[in-house]
Design a protein around this nucleic acid. Structure first.
Length: 549
RNA sequence: GGGCCGUUAGCUCAGUCGGCAGAGCACCGGACUUUUAAUCCGGGUGUCCAGGGUUCGAGCCCCUGACGGCCCA
């Protein structure tokens, strides 16, 4: 896409023309009296009560989304965040401002002052007496009938997606309402919303790889949080009996249709509660939020009707694996034995997989796809869960559950471990497992957290909910990037070429007649791994040749 | 990981047998005082995803690669 195409140049000329006429194309303010929704409501009321049309004066603002010009009269469609409405331009009514039409394009922001009327066809309309340019657009909007379809462009230029696709806009409004409803629900149950640090000395609280960053003044390596768990528990220890945090979590993993490296979670902790209390919290939360936002607990997702009404099914994890994979994990408590059973089932496993990871694979491959209607998978092996309390009377298991809807994990919760000695031992087990299974992610020992637990921690029920997953469910979307406004994407081809050309220019500046091949090697050394993997030798040589001329 | 499909104008998309690159919207010029995707007349604005090959000639055929979509694992 060229930066200065025909559209840009023509519109830039109009900006200059307006300035020559003494009109600011980007004024600082405008005296709007009504939103479009308010103006429409007002007109409806006035018409009912028979208020004379000449008194019905308002000023409204919005983006110009359509122009029907008929010479001495023109109709414009105006849209603001509340709705859209037609404005009428008449030369005999407007005088000089009618000339603004010549400098007007689709996508511009406009203020219109005049009477509210119905036209001959009954369309609610602002009959403009004056019109004011509020913000000139230099790029044309996408095609008005089909909207923007190109997936890459929709995600890379979400604003264009939002401008042209109403259902996308509605989806993000829904997501925002979802978060607000969750917040109201938690507040209503006397949970205190808190904010805990994103930059940490130790990335603990989950099994995930962190992003690493640098604090210059302290000259210290910091990690972006992979969970909010440990700090929220420290709040509980401090006597804040019910706390929650809605915030961004960062995990340094691959990105695909269901994973964005940053995502939003809601974690909550409640003193004196256990995981049974949290199960009822979750099913009540989800069903009441669904009723509030959608008017029903029945969600349509992937061609199925899913009823999130409480109570949700409880399914013991070991029994679930027994039912769907026909393997008894209690009969195969070591990795070699379990791996052998799984291979016989056709599940891909490796020599390096830990026992916990094998169970995780079984869940992902055999169990999760069956959990379409809301289900709590209950009681997890201790190996997989260093922060949960052991289940009394059941060796090797902890009080943990995960909630599944439509085959997706939507939450994870425990009766929290509050014994500091056992907690230290469990962290140490994680560290040992890391040494044994270098390719897997395990939790890390956090001394500050252990110190906190040593001050005494009440029995506690904790919860983590994936907000993005819930947004997917509520909006019927199968990919996370359709519910994240600005998802991370791999570089576009344009961006790759731009990075390559920049590197070539740098290398050529310091070069002294090396061969093309030698230059290509130098360029490759300076390029990032991602760019290198995206550029072929032929393409690189061709670009060096072009740059050299 | 495997298979199939796709990438062409600002946007949405056609492109037959390998022979001058097309339509609608948008845009530019003109007409029009009641339109609703306004209408009518005139104008086609292009790195056909990238690189290489075959050919007198490639959007189309062949190879390699990138990205995306769908299906399967």
């Amino acid at each position: 896409m060229t930066e200065r195409d025909e559209y840009f140049l023509i519109r830039a000329e109009k900006v200059e023309r307006l300035r020559e006429q003494g009109i600011d194309p980007f004024p600082a303010r405008y005296g709007r009296t009504h939103t479009i929704a308010a103006a429409r409501a007002l007109l409806a009321r006035w018409s009912e009560r028979g208020r004379p049309a000449r008194e019905r004066s308002v000023s409204v603002t919005g983006r110009v989304t359509g122009v029907r010009n008929m010479g001495r009269v023109a109709f414009l469609d105006l849209r603001d965040g509340t709705g859209s409405m037609q404005a009428q331009f008449r030369r005999d009514v407007m005088g000089g401002d009618f000339e603004l039409l010549k400098s007007l394009d689709l996508g511009d922001f406009l203020g219109v002052r005049g009477r509210l009327i119905h036209t001959r066809t009954g369309e609610p309309t602002v009959e403009a007496r004056s019109a004011t340019m509020l913000g000139k657009a230099l790029r044309p909007p996408p095609e008005k009938w089909h909207g923007l379809q190109d997936v890459q462009q929709r995600l890379r230029q979400r604003e264009a997606d939002l401008i042209s696709n109403d259902e996308v806009r509605e989806r993000f409004v829904l997501r925002s309402k979802l978060v607000a409803a969750i917040r109201r629900f938690m507040d209503g149950r006397d949970y205190l919303e808190v904010e805990t640090p994103i930059l940490l000395n130790v990335a603990a609280g989950a099994n995930a790889r962190p992003f690493v960053t640098q604090h210059n003044a302290l000259s210290r390596t910091l990690y972006l949080r992979i969970a909010t768990e440990l700090h929220l528990k420290r709040c509980i220890i401090g006597g804040l009996d019910r706390v929650y945090e809605i915030g961004r979590i960062f995990r340094n993993e691959g990105l695909d249709t269901t994973h964005n490296p940053e995502f939003t979670s809601m974690e909550s902790y409640e003193a004196y509660a256990d995981y049974n209390d949290i199960m009822s919290l979750v099913e009540t939360l989800v069903s009441s939020v669904a009723t509030e936002l959608l008017g029903t607990t029945e969600l349509e997702y992937g061609g199925e009707v899913i009823d999130v009404k409480a109570p949700w099914r409880r399914l013991d994890l070991r029994e679930a694996i027994l039912r769907y994979a026909e393997i008894d994990i209690d009969a195969h408590r070591d990795a070699a034995s379990l791996a052998e059973q799984m291979r016989a089932m056709g599940v891909v496993v490796t020599q390096e997989d830990s026992w916990g990871r094998l169970v995780d694979k079984l869940l992902g491959d055999k169990v999760e796809p069956n959990l379409v209607q809301p289900t709590f998978l209950v009681d997890y092996p201790v190996e997989m869960t260093p922060l949960a309390k052991r289940k009394p009377g059941r060796d090797g298991y902890v009080e943990r559950f995960e909630g599944y809807v439509a085959g997706m994990e939507v939450c994870n919760a425990f009766t929290e471990l509050n014994d500091p000695i056992e907690q230290r031992r469990r962290f140490e087990e994680q560290e040992a497992l890391r040494l044994e299974h270098a390719l897997e992610d395990f939790d890390r020992l956090d001394e500050d957290f252990l110190t906190a637990v040593e001050y005494g921690m009440p029995p506690t029920g904790g919860l983590g909910v994936g907000i993005d997953r819930l947004a997917m469910l509520f909006s019927g979307q199968s990919t996370v990037r359709e519910v994240v406004l600005f998802p991370h994407l791999s570089l576009s081809q344009d961006e790759v070429f731009r990075a390559v050309d920049l590197a070539i220019r740098d290398i050529l500046r310091g070069s002294s007649g090396e061969s093309g091949d030698a230059l290509a090697r130098m360029v490759r050394v300076s390029l990032s791994e991602e760019v290198n993997s995206r550029i072929t030798d032929g393409e690189l040589l061709r670009r060096i040749e072009i740059a050299g001329r």
